[in-house]
Structures are given as C-alpha cells and as structure tokens.
C-alpha cells in the first residue's frame, strides 16, 4: 500500500501564497470600490485624521481608492507583482502611522477603511493592518529549498 505523501510547509506554501494573494486582492479592491462609491465620506474620513492640509484632502481621497484597487488587482499580474507588493506595503504602513497618530492624539476618528463602515476600535485597526502585512509577507516567492 502506498503511503500518502507527508504534508510539509514546502508542499503547502503555494496554496498559502495563493490564499494570501486572494484575500489581499479582495480586501483592497473591495475597500477601494467602497471608497469610490462614497467619495464624500472618503473625503470626510481623510479629513478626520487631521494629518493633511486642507488643499491635500481631496487629491488624497481621489488617489487612495485607486491605489488600493490597482495594487490589489496587480497582485495577479506576474510582472507587476513585486511593484504591487511594494505599493501595498507602503499603503499599510501609511495607514498604520495615520491610525497610531490619531490614537496618540485621542481623536475619535471613523476609520474610513471600507467607505462608510461602522465604528472600530484602535486596537482592532492596528491588529488588522499588522495581519494584512503578515499576509503580504506570505505572498513573497521565497527561495524554495
């Protein structure tokens, strides 16, 4: 009788990478589309962080959804994948800095992460961003031994 092949990290890695990529694409594309669907709320959310001067709020609100949609979708284009990972990591670190800065200043912000979503506490927002950064690190094609 043939023995079933042992399940190793190496054998699981392609599936994990695929799932991580799929999750990231869904999260970022949905977040971007929801932001585009409610530009007024997106602008209010960006303004709520009080990090940008007034003139920069609208351009940032216009750029942010497209940065999410394009970066999320490009994870599936092999020759754009590295650039997409770079943009997604930059976005996630920017979100983290913005959230931590708002938390430190005691601001009662609306995240604005998924358009007009409900209230979410700071610890959850920070944990979610670190979780997404963790997922992003799983999408990297490492050296297979």
């Amino acid at each position: 009788m043939k023995r079933a092949p042992a399940i190793t990290w190496k054998s699981l890695r392609p599936c994990v990478r695929l799932l991580a990529r799929l999750t990231l694409t869904c999260v970022f594309v949905i977040a971007g589309v929801l932001k585009l669907a409610g530009m007024e709320q997106t602008q209010a959310a960006v303004e709520g962080y009080r990090l940008l001067p007034g003139w920069a709020v609208w351009p940032a609100a216009l750029f942010l959804p497209w940065a999410e949609i394009v970066s999320g979708a490009a994870l599936w284009v092999p020759w754009l994948r590295e650039a997409s990972r770079f943009f997604l990591a930059t976005l996630l670190w920017l979100f983290l800095v913005a959230i931590l800065a708002a938390w430190a200043r005691g601001l009662d912000i609306r995240c604005g992460c998924f358009g007009g979503e409900g209230e979410a506490g700071y610890p959850w927002l920070v944990a979610r961003d670190f979780g997404l950064l963790g997922l992003l690190s799983l999408t990297k094609r490492g050296v297979e031994k």
């Binding site: 585009l36 530009m39 007024e40 602008q43 007034g54 609208w58 351009p59 216009l62 750029f63 959804p65 497209w66 940065a67 949609i69 394009v70 970066s71 490009a74 754009l80 650039a83 997409s84 770079f86 943009f87």
Partner: peptide
C-alpha cells in the same frame, strides 16, 4: 512600478472629472 503609479493617477484623474468635489466643509 511606473505602470501601477500611472494607472493610479489615471484613475484618480478620471474620478476627479466624473465626481464633483463635495463642497468644502
């Protein structure tokens, strides 16, 4: 990277043309 950056700027530009800017404040 240039390709993705260009797509983002293009998308933002098209949105700016199609969506009227909400009144400031």
């Amino acid at each position: 990277m240039l390709v993705l950056g260009s797509l983002m700027v293009l998308g933002a530009g098209v949105t700016a043309l199609l969506v009227p800017r909400p009144g400031q404040n």
